[in-house]
Design a protein around this nucleic acid. Structure first.
Lengths: 341, 341
DNA sequence: TTGAAAGCGTTACCAT
DNA sequence: ATGGTAACGCTTTCAA
């Protein structure tokens, strides 16, 4: 066993041990603050490490402990990482990053869902945002025993306790109730033709709610980022017969497109038409009028997901899915609620 | 040496070797497509690996080869990862992610600039965006021999060839020239009080350009994300004496704030006031009028940075800084240039 | 062409 | 309280 410390190489724990005149194992214990070593030797070892500029090799540490100290965040794969164009995912990324730092974990970004991504294979666990209905890569992660936590329920694993979810039905209803409370009697939903669970679930919630309150339903479709499509579709609707007095938009772009259409037609918002969204985003905040919406709090969702994943990695028992309550953000695109409801 | 394959454990290369009746080393060679092994044994080994569901342990691989297959992206630390609120950084992240995938590398996000981030220590190299003037962590990375590539020059390492840069002076001048070509005779710069190199460099370029063309200079300041501050400052300017006929805004928010101020004062854009920005962003594209700006092409910058970092990790010689040309995006907030210039 | 064995740097166990 | 040493899973050299 070579125990020389050629210069040029990075110092290893062996160098530190020799410098401090202790054994390799003791150096390891001392550096990690084990109570196996005397306070005095601990100090000596730390000083030696400092002198040598020693930093633990986390790869070697990982091999030995079986943990890399990395978690991965997998974004939905509608063409790769470009989903970051949506503020929701950026916020989730921010939340995950913050929580990872707090937990002394590194965060690797898992872009599109491919075969062998270096990130996934190195990570101790993976957070999957908006798991697709039948995605082979998530399935494989699970089969290989990688700890997985999802944000949003995994359609192929109903009732999975390792998930952070929102009560989408409840949230959707709360916004519908809010619109109705300020006078809406004909609410149209602007959804998408993408078969994502998010859209389908909200459409279902809308229909069941409308059924209960005996309201006619109409669902418009526009691509998730297709502002102009939403604008055109809304324009048709507003100029057609039986125009709505309120719009509920499932995406930021459809909300803005709807607002633009109303303004094109000279309809006052909220006086002539109320508009609300089901996710928040900068264009909604900055709009004129600013648009009322439900905020899913993606930062909190991601933070909760990291904590859940850490628990799962530690081998803890699941405590059921974590539900993050969002909140309704009142802005100018909806009329105030009269006291009598 | 234990060579049993208890079920429950993940299969190792030893299990594969035994399954294929070859030695450990041969299995390794076969799996990685070395030409040391017969085509026939290669197939057999691959099949064995397939059967067992074997995946290489990249931590062990990393320990042996000294490479983790990870690169880190360090975002500037104005309060952590929140810089992702700016589209520029999100775009850079997208570009880096794309290039990392293409190079079969994992991308870890290095949030704020702290002591021992798991991400940095595991990575084979680090990309630093907008290196701060005197940041201890970047300095330490360098001292420890971590390959570093910066996007934007590192003020503490002038002339570093391992950098992806934009010709900020030239870009700033091109926009100023453009404004002047369409009639601007008094251009005011909206900068920031943050002491970042980006702001300082552009202020200097503005002053030297104005000196050359004998134009009076005025520099306004507003915080990087302070739209209302920019709006108020611009309003003062527009209602004061000697109001400008053009505005050059260094941030997205200051450009929008300026536009709002103009509209508040009833000044037509671009007829009564031209406005241009020096970075692109959604609010500029979606504005009414949409705002002309210089696009730094952060996606291309990040892609170039990843390639440069890969070269540096491979031990190649530097080939001088990589300059990414952005481009001027003509939109509605500037008047057309008359043919005679 | 293949097998055997020596590390890579660390942690954890068994002695002392 | 500390030292010695065997793994961890892989790649790579040295023999055969």
């Amino acid at each position: 066993m070579r125990v020389t410390s050629e210069d040029g190489r990075k110092p290893t724990i062996i160098d530190v041990a020799r410098e401090a005149s202790v054994s390799q194992g003791t150096a390891s214990d001392a550096l990690r603050g084990s109570d196996r070593v005397t306070e005095e030797t601990r100090k000596r070892v730390k000083r030696a490490a400092e002198n040598l500029g020693y930093r633990v090799n986390r790869v070697a540490q990982g091999l030995r402990t079986g943990q890399s100290g990395l978690i991965a965040l997998m974004l939905p794969s509608a063409g790769g990482v470009e989903m970051l164009a949506h503020e929701y995912y950026v916020s989730a990324l921010i939340g995950a990053s913050r929580a990872a730092v707090a937990g002394d974990l590194g965060l690797v970004l898992l872009p599109e869902i491919d075969g062998d991504s270096t990130g996934a294979e190195l990570a101790d666990g993976v957070i999957v945002i908006d798991p697709p209905r039948r995605d082979p890569s998530v399935k494989r992660l699970r089969k290989e025993g990688t700890p997985v936590v999802t944000i949003g329920a995994d359609p192929s694993l109903p009732g999975d306790p390792w998930a952070v979810i929102a009560d989408n039905e409840e949230n959707c209803r709360s916004v519908l109730d809010r619109l109705r409370a300020s006078g809406a009697r004909r609410i149209v939903l602007i959804s998408s033709d993408e078969p994502w669970g998010w859209f389908l679930g909200n459409e279902a919630a809308y229909r069941s709610w409308a059924n209960e309150v005996e309201m006619v339903t109409t669902v418009l479709s526009a691509g998730p980022g297709d502002r102009d499509g939403a604008r055109a579709a809304t324009a048709d609707l507003l100029t057609g017969e039986d125009p709505p007095d309120a719009l509920l938009a499932l995406t930021v772009d459809s909300a803005i497109g709807a607002l633009e259409a109303a303004q094109d037609e000279g309809i006052e918002v909220p006086e002539g038409l109320q508009i609300a969204g089901l996710v928040d985003g900068a264009p909604l905040r900055d709009g004129d009028p600013a648009i009322t919406c439900f905020d899913l709090d993606p930062v909190a969702q991601a933070e909760a997901a990291v904590k859940l994943l850490m628990a799962r990695i530690r081998g803890e028992e699941p405590s059921g899915p974590v539900v993050i309550d969002g909140r309704l953000i009142e802005r100018e695109s909806t009329r105030p609620v009269r006291d009598g409801g």
